[in-house]
Amino acid sequence: MKVKVFGRLIEICESNYVEIDFVDSVELLKNSMETRFPLLKQHKYFIAIDKVISGSNDLIKPDSEIAFMPPYSGG
């Protein structure tokens, strides 16, 4: 499955898209990404599934669009 990342997370993941093995929960998704990119643990971000900002109990479908979005502060 493909995960799109935004903002500073692009530098941590070294790409704006990351390909990972399918997982069906937000918690597993987070674990998978943070294991591969440990610096993610030091950043806050929200996760959107199919363009909806999701809670930790939401389920992921194989064709779901996933996004990791950090806060921005520039202005």
Binding site: R8, Q42, H43, K44, F46, I53, P70, P71, Y72, S73, G74, G75
Partner: peptide, 21 residues
């Protein structure tokens, strides 16, 4: 706060003065 109920670490953020825009 619906996005970020609590502030993220200040060190994880950067302003335009820091990273450019």
């Amino acid at each position: 706060r619906s996005l970020f109920p609590e502030p993220p670490p200040a060190s994880s953020l950067a302003t335009c003065n820091e990273v450019g825009v």
